[in-house]
Design a protein around this nucleic acid. Sequence first.
DNA 1: AAATATTTTTAGGTTAATCTAAATGTATTA
DNA 2: TAATACATTTAGATTAACCTAAAAATATTT
Lengths: 218, 218
Amino acid sequence: MLSFAEENYLKTIYHLSQETDSAVTTNAIADSLNTKAASVTDMIKKLSKKGVLSYQKYKGVQVSKTGEIAALQVIRKHRLWETFLVDKLKFNWDQVHEVAEQLEHINSDLLIQRLDEFLAYPKYDPHGDPIPDENGLFKSKPRVALDQCLDGQSGIIVAVKDSNSAFLKYLDKIGLYLGAKIKIIDKVEFDGSLEIQIDNKKSTFISKEVSENIWITE
Amino acid sequence: MLSFAEENYLKTIYHLSQETDSAVTTNAIADSLNTKAASVTDMIKKLSKKGVLSYQKYKGVQVSKTGEIAALQVIRKHRLWETFLVDKLKFNWDQVHEVAEQLEHINSDLLIQRLDEFLAYPKYDPHGDPIPDENGLFKSKPRVALDQCLDGQSGIIVAVKDSNSAFLKYLDKIGLYLGAKIKIIDKVEFDGSLEIQIDNKKSTFISKEVSENIWITE
DNA sequence: AAATATTTTTAGGTTAATCTAAATGTATTA
DNA sequence: TAATACATTTAGATTAACCTAAAAATATTT
């Protein structure tokens, strides 16, 4: 059984491990969790003793198979709760993250099973991220980040990378949402910004940074 | 802001204070929370410093006005979550307590407001206990414990005192539920047990201990 | 490859919440 | 009311999760 803090570390390390092919570094973990490297060293020792991480001094950590299973259960809970908050309690997609960070640590198999059923076994959360099933299995939609696309290309928004509130509010403001049709009108060479058309309406401009955080179907 | 542990102490002390007219003792708190008197002394010092309890060494504690408001918010959350689990997730009334003990500490005003709305502002939880509103106000139904009733008296079950799983399962088994019609056929002088009739069906016997834990309308 | 910079670990300390055992206060009873 | 019993508090440890500062390992530059 993992504690609240241990679950948070494991989940974060799992996410970081998905973004790199090498081991996850102590500093990367500390940055993600807004904590200090010394605290991370303590915790990764504990988690490797528990068998969810493999760790060699000064070489970073990797998530073990049992660690992955445990991490995916936390992620499953997080994404089910986010779906509940949006679908049933009418939260906006920018309001769910903080609350789901708390709810994901509630411990009850029956609760999660029933919640999943109540939500009709959703496959994706409000940000387009896949929801692992009770065995940790999930399927991602094939997708490309908008900054990788070419002039004239179009597609449907299937996910956003960053779920921070300010970013999501900005997307709402310019009329972007999951399922929106998007077409690249022009790509500005100078700064990588894009002129895009949403749902065949009048075009807008988005920065390269924003375009890196939006995924569309290929 | 109170911690998880502090909220648990405060809620428990509030409940104990409702059952007595004098101050709540250190040992009573320790028993309720399955902890030791020494731990309780430490915690009540902290809580009185925070202004939610008033405390005099060796004289027990009383819940202050601000303490009562805080306690009622925790109780409100507990009872709303229990209602959610039963009404929406089809939990049995004997399965909700443990999970609600965790959920009651989730911190989000918006969540509770929306949950209340989603449940259509319920006034009573699955055990018949009143749910305080956002200001801590609630109304109890007038009620008598079954062991206080006389031969021939009848009424509707409006609440149960104890929400422990074994007790509630037993009630299910003998056909008792909130809203059931109950009639006292005979009161056995010797041990205080009762012969009762449920919903005009064939009669059963219940012990005095059980009858003390069932409340009916007068 | 030596010097320098960066990352990671270790050593030692802090805080919250718990504990046991001993000391002290309060209550009961002979 | 003195003796005994019981309740409560204090003293001092323990554990988990964090911290700072210093030491050690690794990486990068010149």
